[in-house]
């Protein structure tokens, strides 16, 4: 059973291959993402995060999940030498953390219902468990940053998360004569594989911001591997990445 919906400005897919899968279980995942969007979207006037930013609510008055996200953000800031910071331009924007966290929680909801074989994917970031409909580990293609219709690597994810930071349009900033040289252009995409999507996502975000040094940052961490593609079409990957590679 597999469904895709556009939420939070991106396609979100939930697939469960256990025979006992129900529509209710999948609906609940999407309801959860809707709650996440309503609570954490900085583009919604009345979301909880907007009320905090508008000083209509203090952090002490905030909900337990909101306070949890702020605590996680503080921990991530320390973990990433300050590269990951939800506070900028006088506002809090935890969206870089919330996405991976929400995928992980939605996947955990499926586990709690007793499912073994499923994945939750939001905007190209994935938490997978068990195997696919053919009894093999989930096969995840890493998108080509030069051509969004192609994949450049296939990795096997049995139980874990995979997140990519970057975008295929990154090289196109050269069309904008007002900003040459301002953007980090050498790294187009950086994919992180790990035991869970929450960590993979936040680390991918931080490592991508580091430019070409990002892959070295991941190399230093136990339990995480990375595949980084630069603007010359050359990929650099961590010493344990090949363990995941199918082709």
């Amino acid at each position: 059973m597999k469904q895709t919906r556009i939420m939070m400005g991106m396609p979100i897919t939930v697939e469960v291959v256990d025979h006992s899968a129900t529509q209710q279980a999948i609906d609940d995942c999407f309801l959860y993402f809707q709650w996440v969007d309503d609570t954490f979207s900085t583009y919604k006037e009345d979301s909880e995060i907007s009320r905090i930013n508008q000083k209509r609510m203090t952090l002490a008055e905030a909900s337990q999940p909101m306070r949890a996200i702020f605590a996680l953000a503080e921990a991530t800031k320390l973990d990433t030498d300050g590269y990951f910071d939800i506070y900028r331009n006088g506002r809090y924007d935890p969206s870089g953390l919330v996405k991976g966290w929400a995928i992980f929680n939605a996947a955990s909801m499926l586990a709690q219902r007793g499912y073994w074989n499923y994945y939750v994917e939001a905007g190209g970031d994935i938490q997978a468990a068990g195997h696919n409909a053919w009894g093999q580990p989930w096969r995840v293609g890493i998108r080509n940053p030069f051509n969004m219709h192609e994949i450049v690597k296939v990795v096997a994810i049995a139980d874990g998360g995979i997140a990519t930071s970057g975008t295929y349009i990154r090289g196109q900033h050269i069309y904008n004569p007002k900003t040459p040289g301002e953007l980090q252009t050498d790294v187009l995409s950086l994919t992180v594989v790990g035991s869970n999507i929450y960590d993979a996502d936040r680390l991918a975000t931080a490592a991508f911001a580091m430019g070409s040094e990002g892959v070295f940052f991941i190399e230093k961490l136990d339990g995480f591997e990375a595949y980084q593609i630069n603007s010359a079409g050359v990929a650099t990957f961590t010493s344990g990445f090949m363990r995941y590679v199918l082709s």
């Binding site: 994935i126 995840v140 293609g141 890493i142 998108r143 969004m148 994949i151 199918l246």
Partner: peptide, 20 residues
């Protein structure tokens, strides 16, 4: 670290990951 020139893959996949 190791490096390689990226190449398009034709293998079937269940999910596509990447910044979209």
């Amino acid at each position: 670290l190791q490096s390689e020139t990226i190449q398009a893959q034709s293998a079937q996949v269940d999910i596509i990951g990447g910044a979209t």
